[in-house]
Amino acid sequence: MLEFFHAKKPLFPPVGFLCSLLALGVGMAYSSHLVLYGYIAALALLFALFGLWRAVLGAGLMMGCFGLLTGVLSCLTAGSFASFFETLGRCLLLGVAAVPMLSLPAADMTRSLRQMKCPGALTLGILVTIRFIPVLVGEVRQIREAMKTRGAGSAWRRPQTIYRAFFIPLTMRILGISDALSLSLETRGFRLKNKDASVFRPVRFGWRDGVFAVGTGILSVLLGVLA
């Protein structure tokens, strides 16, 4: 599933990760200003120029729809249109800012952390997190299908059945998968204190990554100035 967010030429992982954090942090700090929309549009353009246009469209659309819904709710509860625009803006920001992070292949991420001699616990945590998102999505899809085969797919008059038929298998699968994954990592030699793990295909910082980082930085500064 995360392959959808990948570019043909991936970013240097720390750059992608830090730019995502920067965009999110700065954006949230100025989320009550309308200039945020300009910031989001400029970020989307920058990311698209670096091969992430599909991811930007997908994430933007998804979070945009979510933002519309939550924005309406926020407007109704707060009683002001400003609340709608702020909520929508934050949701769009979350979607677009996450794109550089989501675009990082798990292998590149792990290798760059190893090259930087990061603690094994951090590498493990990020590896499992990256792995788990598509796994979770796949499992939810599978369970929803299985619910249909047991007649619990649309038993709206029996919410307890739907609840059980979804959450019990999901919980068991998550537990089973996390067990299997941790066993597999250990039996394949992964050790938390192993800072000398080699790197099959080293990940290197290039001029593209520098341009990307500087671009994100300039846009963030501009937001601060204009807001």
Partner: peptide
């Protein structure tokens, strides 16, 4: 449940890197 990487070559190399 054990595969962690997107490409087969990366997956095959994972254990070798750990060693």
């Amino acid at each position: 449940e054990q595969i962690v990487y997107e490409k087969a070559a990366d997956e095959a190399a994972f254990g070798c890197e750990n060693l």
